[in-house]
């Protein structure tokens, strides 16, 4: 396989991209003004809870639905004016799969190649190459209905890269996969980046965004609430996170810790069982905290000190926990 030289510069750029759906109950603004910038050659992650607008954004960028408003450039082509050029240059792997259970893996790949304009011979050669890369040779001539979830998902990715696109959109590539198949998929995605393909993936798994993506955007209710590398985002939360189990006394604990000078920010969860606070230096703050709580006659049931995670970033921006929503 001739690996394409990576292209420098912007691979995807959007300005105020919007999409409204009309439904019987009124209209839903699924994507409410998204500005994105994805560099060529990076793995860009779109992290957000279910219903945040990830799929809708991807379907717009892949020419499947037209934006209600806004502009976008994908792989050097204008989304509105040159959709056919966009289609030629991108690959798209839909969220729920993309294969017919009665067709073989090889059959799907050869057809896909031909739909991208390859001759029969070229499509067959490329199908064999993709099957080998994705370790699907043994199952190549079986119906995809007999594949495991991980195999089917790898084949979906194969279908997206048959024509060696400049950018590959992956909508929740690992949702529903067991940990082993997920690790396998991460490897494939990293290999794509090594070959120079830009990858734009969506996920609602924090670990996936953290481990796999060079840069990410957090999306909630159709809007981007934070963007940057995982480390940049976490630094923005600043300092360490202390979580105190309070067993009902959330309000009094909260008002106490808010009065402490070294606490930057504090909040309690919806059930009132946990108080969360952000401090500059956790290891010195915890003893202070314990003493102050003790002096006020408040006994914590637990106390934990953590480095901020992407969930803290999400929590800070939206007031909700992504981990809880995903569960």
């Amino acid at each position: 396989m001739t690996s394409p030289t990576p292209i420098r510069g912007t691979m995807i750029g959007t300005t105020d991209l919007r999409r409204t759906f009309k439904t019987r109950g009124g209209s839903v603004e699924a994507v409410a003004g998204v500005d994105l910038h994805v560099e060529a050659g990076e793995i860009f992650g779109f992290l957000g809870p279910n219903g945040a607008g990830k799929t809708t954004t991807l379907r717009m960028l892949a020419t499947l639905i037209t934006p209600t408003a806004g502009e976008a450039t994908v792989a050097g082509a204008d989304l509105r004016r040159q959709p056919q050029l966009v289609r030629q240059r991108i690959g798209y792997v839909p969220q729920g799969g993309s294969t017919d259970p009665a067709e073989t893996g090889r059959g799907e790949l050869v057809l896909q190649g031909r739909l991208y304009g390859m001759t029969k011979g070229a499509a067959e050669a490329r199908a064999a190459e993709v099957l080998a890369t994705l370790d699907l040779e043994a199952a190549a001539d079986r119906g995809t209905g007999t594949y495991s979830g991980g195999m089917r998902r790898r084949l979906d990715v194969g279908l997206g890269i048959v024509h060696q696109p400049q950018v590959l959109f992956l909508d929740e590539p690992t949702t529903g996969l067991d940990p082993q198949a997920r690790a396998r998929m991460w490897q494939e995605i990293e290999r794509l980046r090594e070959l120079g393909t830009t990858v734009f993936l969506t996920t609602h798994y924090l670990e996936e965004a953290d481990a796999l993506c060079d840069r990410l955007a957090i999306i909630d209710l159709g809007r981007i609430v934070a963007e940057g590398t995982s480390d940049q985002l976490k630094q923005r939360v600043a300092g360490d996170v202390v979580t105190i189990g309070v067993d009902g006394a959330a309000a009094s604990v909260l008002s106490l810790v808010e009065s402490l000078p070294f606490v930057r920010e504090a909040s309690h969860d919806a059930e009132g069982g946990l108080v969360r606070l952000y401090v500059d230096r956790g290891e010195t703050a915890v003893p202070h905290l314990l003493r102050s709580l003790d002096a006020a006659g408040l006994a914590p049931t637990s106390i934990a000190l953590n480095k901020p995670s992407l969930d803290d970033v999400f929590l800070r921006q939206t007031g909700r926990s992504l981990r809880e929503e995903a569960a």
Partner: peptide, 16 residues
């Protein structure tokens, strides 16, 4: 059925 399998969406993204 093809819509549900995602086959139609996959083809619509190609230039076919």
């Amino acid at each position: 059925a093809e819509l549900r399998y995602g086959v139609v969406e996959r083809m619509r993204v190609t230039p076919m």
